[in-house]
Design a binder for these strands. Structure first.
Length: 224
DNA sequence: CAGCTAAGTGGTGTCTTCGT
DNA sequence: ACGAAGACACCACTTAGCTG
């Protein structure tokens, strides 16, 4: 059966907007349609896909597993259609003057930014790069809306979502002790770790935040 | 025919009250 | 202090009738 012949492609933005807002009413406001029109569109989509697509959960709409699997292909399809209306429908790195927005942790900026800039200068000399520091929630929203192109760092919260991610490297923390400190072992035991006084640099970025969260989850209290 | 408004129904969360 | 029950608000959804 050729579904696309009879399928109304205007329904796809409705699908994506309800997914992004988690609400039929909010999606209706966003698209400038009535709530019942969105409801009707959803009914058609449900019929077409043979799946409820969303379940009511409290005061919102929770996507079904089928819907979660659909969202990226549908977004990609809409993006490709959008691309046919713009002058730069086929991406060309050597000519693009786009500004790419990268969200990075403190560590990400230190390690990756110089290399990324060098590489972009080689491949896309007219492109610009903007780096933003943002919370995981802001990054999630930015990736969804397209305000953020790429996030580099440790974002365990985002791994649950439908974002493509790539593991780049492992790293670990080290403890620094003054020269001549009684603890000289190369491996530090937990009791040794807790027995000494700690110096903490506050506001040290997301890496520090993740470390603090880990200590809290393990109920580890240090003497700072 | 698609989309609108309006009215009505039903599900869910929140808040308050009351009994234990 | 705690849980159950009821009132209430909010939201999704359906249906009927209207309009362009």
């Amino acid at each position: 059966m050729d579904v696309t012949r009879s399928f109304d492609l205007n329904l796809l933005p409705v699908l994506v907007t309800v997914y992004e807002h988690g609400s039929v009413t909010a999606a209706a406001e966003h698209l400038g349609m009535s709530q019942s029109a969105i409801s009707t569109a959803l009914a058609k989509l449900r019929l077409t896909y043979g799946d409820p697509l969303f379940h009511r959960v409290g005061h919102g709409m929770q996507p079904t597993a089928r819907m979660r699997g659909l969202i990226e292909p549908v977004r990609e399809a809409l993006s490709r259609v959008d691309g046919t209306f713009t002058s730069e429908s086929v991406f060309n790195a050597s000519t693009t003057a786009r500004t790419f927005t990268l969200a990075m942790s403190d560590l990400g900026e230190m390690v990756f930014m110089p290399k990324i800039l060098r590489r972009i200068r080689q491949l896309a000399p007219r492109a610009s790069v903007r780096s933003v520091a943002a919370s995981a929630t802001q990054i999630e929203r930015g990736l969804e809306t397209g305000e953020v192109d790429l996030a580099v760092g440790y974002f365990p919260d985002l791994r649950e979502k439908s974002f493509a991610d790539k593991h780049l490297f492992f790293h670990h923390f080290v403890c620094l002790l003054r020269a001549g400190h009684p603890i000289t072992a190369s491996t530090l035991s937990m009791s040794q770790f807790l027995s000494v006084e700690h110096a903490v640099v506050y506001g040290a970025g997301r890496t520090y935040e993740i470390f603090e969260r880990y200590l809290k989850s393990k109920k580890i209290h240090r003497r700072v």
